[in-house]
Amino acid sequence: MTECLLCNVELLTRPSWKSLLALDDEMVVCLECFSRFKRSNQKFEDTLLKNITALYEYNDAMRDYLHQYKFLQDIALANVFKNELRDVVKSKVNIIPIPMHPKRKVARTFSHVEELLKCARISYSDVLEKKDDETMGEKSKKERLAISPLFNLKSNAIIEYEPYLIIDDIYTTGTTLRHAAALLIEAGAKEVEAVTLIRARLND
């Protein structure tokens, strides 16, 4: 018996031809829970970024999901959006996740962005490192916009004159993505796009 990862009800699923051929994955949450997430597929531009795609909007269901996944360390929830994430990046190359600071990764026990990619079976390059262990969620919009550079390139990183795709869990003001994009472009990237699981709004 398979249970929904969010509400623990029994999932009544039947194998599809896609899942049997490993082209798709069965749902890991029930339809009722999944329907509470508000799909966005919003595409927009930001400074230094050619294109940003946000898959979902931030609502009560997503807030609860993030709390359980990131703060209660329920790593199995990385599987919830693997099909959607895989579909949107399947033709992309040079995929780079936004990293956690090593101290915060130890505290959380896993990197939530990297785990999303692993569950979606998406290859990625670990070339960025976070300079401090503060989170953007602890800062106001004004503080985010005034922050000093957030990332360094790892010493063995090689950035070619090619397109790159940054992956993050949530877009609010875009500060994190802009800092990463600026570093990659300075290092030689041709252009930078981004995909985030969620787009949220931040009040001043």
Rank of each mutant, 00 (worst) to 15 (best):
V127H: 03
F34N: 00
L183Q: 13
D64I: 10
L184P: 15
K103C: 07
Y56C: 08
L12T: 04
L202H: 07
W17F: 06
S16W: 08
Y171D: 03
T196N: 10
E45L: 12
Y65D: 08
E26F: 06
Y69L: 12
P97K: 01
T176H: 11
F34E: 00
K130R: 12
L72Y: 13
K142I: 02
P99W: 12
K139D: 02
C33I: 01
I95S: 00
L128D: 01
L6P: 02
V28M: 06
A180K: 14
A146R: 13
E186I: 12
L20V: 00
K50F: 13
F71T: 05
C33D: 02
C30R: 02
R36I: 01
M136V: 00
L150S: 07
D126I: 04
N51M: 14
I170Q: 02
L153E: 02
A120S: 00
V106A: 06
I166E: 01
L12A: 07
S19P: 05
I52D: 12
D87C: 10
L31H: 02
D204A: 07
A182G: 14
T2H: 13
A157K: 06
R144M: 05
K139P: 07
L153R: 03
N94S: 03
T2P: 15
E193G: 14
I158R: 05
T53M: 15
A61Q: 08
L184S: 11
E32T: 01
V195L: 11
L197N: 06
T196S: 11
K90E: 14
R178S: 13
K190I: 14
Y58H: 13
E162D: 04
T196W: 11
E26L: 07
F151D: 07
Y161E: 11
H67L: 15
N156A: 09
T175W: 12
S155P: 09
L12G: 03
D74R: 11
H179Y: 13
L55F: 13
N41R: 12
Q68K: 15
E160F: 09
L145D: 01
A54S: 15
R144A: 03
P99Y: 11
L49D: 02
Y161F: 13
F110I: 00
A189C: 15
E193F: 15
